[in-house]
């Protein structure tokens, strides 16, 4: 569904990604793990067109789309929950969600309208948001803000949803609550890419796993059968002593 091919990208003179091959298939949950600075967020940003890449480095539903404008990518069906949530400050929860409905992907002819995300379905997923729908988002707790960010991304009607560190800075109980809804998102037919620093969380929540180190993919495979040792080696590098 979505794939990258020998993708290279960077910031100015600094090259951050070195020939990354990455793939998500329809309906799949793929985890992307790696230490700080391994290039996980950079990969997501390149896919979405926030960093310039060559046309054929990113393919989505059989077409080369690399380097398209981010808003065009979103309207095409690639959604993102950005790192740090990035809600629209000064706007209410409901207005934040409505921006996504207004400007997200429009259903194609023949697409099952009942399968589309609605504000009502987001409120069912996260009931607390319904109670606080008219509050401005900066008054919410971190977990609630993350729920708005996920809801907003879902309302752009993505076929693939990129989740950039959605557990970052949240209490374990809240992380649990948020990861609990992922199967429901998947059931709706949306493929998921989970960027995570918490390796065991990523392993449990995903079908397949990619590990990145210094701008390269160092390990890929089935999440369930992957050993801790293999992950540790790919995560820290071959010469690193396994703790």
């Amino acid at each position: 569904m979505l794939s990258t091919h020998a993708l290279t990208a960077g910031y100015g003179d600094f090259q951050a990604l070195f020939g990354v091959d990455f793939e998500v298939r329809a309906g799949e949950v793929v985890a992307l793990i790696g230490a700080n600075g391994a290039g996980k967020s950079t990969l997501l940003r390149s896919i979405l067109g926030l960093l310039s890449v060559a046309r054929d480095m990113v393919r989505f539903r059989g077409e080369s789309v690399g380097g398209s404008k981010p808003h065009a990518m979103v309207r095409n069906g690639i959604g993102i929950v950005p790192e740090g949530r990035r809600l629209f400050a000064g706007m209410s929860i409901e207005d934040n969600l409505r921006v996504a409905i207004d400007y997200g992907r429009k259903p194609q002819r023949g697409e099952n309208v009942a399968s589309l995300w609605t504000i009502e379905r987001i409120y069912k997923l996260f009931p607390i948001l319904r109670e606080r729908r008219d509050q401005v988002v900066h008054n919410l707790s971190g977990g609630q803000q993350q729920m708005v960010a996920i809801g907003r991304a879902l309302l752009t009607q993505p076929m693939v949803l990129l989740c950039d560190e959605i557990s970052l800075g949240l209490a374990p109980k809240v992380i649990h609550e948020i990861y609990d809804v992922l199967p429901m998102i998947r059931q709706a037919g949306t493929a998921l890419v989970l960027v995570e620093q918490d390796v065991s969380l990523a392993q449990r929540a995903s079908d397949r796993l990619y590990c990145m180190l210094e701008g390269r993919i160092t390990l890929t495979g089935d999440s369930n059968t992957m050993t801790r040792e293999a992950i540790a080696e790919a995560y820290f590098g071959a010469n690193h002593a396994v703790a």
Binding site: K69, A72, P82, F88, D95, N96, V99, Y103, A153
Partner: peptide
């Protein structure tokens, strides 16, 4: 209006607005 929400979103966080489908 739709336009107004898009504008407020773009003004609050241009990049996040683009990530929500708004062409800033």
């Amino acid at each position: 209006t739709r336009f107004g929400r898009g504008l407020r979103a773009a003004a609050a966080d241009t990049e996040a607005a683009a990530m929500t489908g708004v062409n800033p």
